[in-house]
């Protein structure tokens, strides 16, 4: 659950130049920002770079923040960062994930179910985005529907369907 009060307080402190608050803000939100960017660009390395760019922009725009909707404000910056990067690279939202990136960038502990990889590689691209945005980035279905320009009902059903597929894969291949 998002702690809007905390994020709001941290952002207000950052807007006054408080470095400690910024570090805490990074700890509190970088995971969600990264997950969101990963869902949009589909590549680990790009998502990592964009996560850092997003936080650089947050520092530079801190004085423009006004109290309220802290998480939405951060995610808006992440979204703008991702879309301007994609525009710059003249590429559209990828429909599939980069095989090379996948092999090179991700290693998991032996015995651990690679949930993230299953979501990225085994689910339909749009379903994968929805699951990452909701489950990992913490976006509400309404927000996801708006971002993906999709009816809310469709988003919800795709999410439910994707979770069931995910559960089925885990059960069949990992016995859990």
């Amino acid at each position: 659950m998002r702690d809007e009060g905390l994020l709001d307080e941290l952002l207000c402190r950052v807007s006054c130049g408080d470095e400690e608050a910024f570090e805490r803000l990074y700890r509190e939100t970088s995971k969600q920002v990264f997950a969101y960017l990963l869902s949009v660009v589909g590549e680990y390395h790009t998502a990592e770079d964009l996560t850092q760019d997003t936080f650089v922009k947050i520092r530079r725009s801190a004085d423009k923040y006004r109290s309220g909707n802290a998480f939405a404000w951060i995610m808006q910056i992440a979204k703008n960062t991702a879309f301007s990067e994609m525009k710059k690279a003249r590429r559209s939202v990828p429909t599939d994930f980069d095989e090379h990136d996948l092999n090179a960038a991700y290693r998991i502990d032996e015995g651990q179910i690679p949930v993230l990889e299953i979501i990225r590689t085994r689910l339909d691209a749009a379903d994968s985005k929805i699951v990452l945005m909701h489950l990992a980035a913490g976006l509400k279905h309404r927000e996801i529907a708006k971002q993906l320009d999709m009816p809310l009902g469709t988003t919800l059903w795709r999410y439910n369907k994707a979770i069931k597929t995910l559960q089925k894969i885990i059960k069949e291949e990992y016995g859990e």
Partner: peptide
């Protein structure tokens, strides 16, 4: 699933580095 996913995302999230910290904070004070 969420718990596992969170852990794997955390593992991939870049740490706060100098590139970010070097950027000035535009503070209104």
């Amino acid at each position: 699933i969420k718990k596992l996913l969170d852990a794997q995302i955390e593992d991939k999230t870049p740490p706060l580095d100098d590139k970010v910290l070097r950027a000035p904070i535009n503070a209104h004070g």
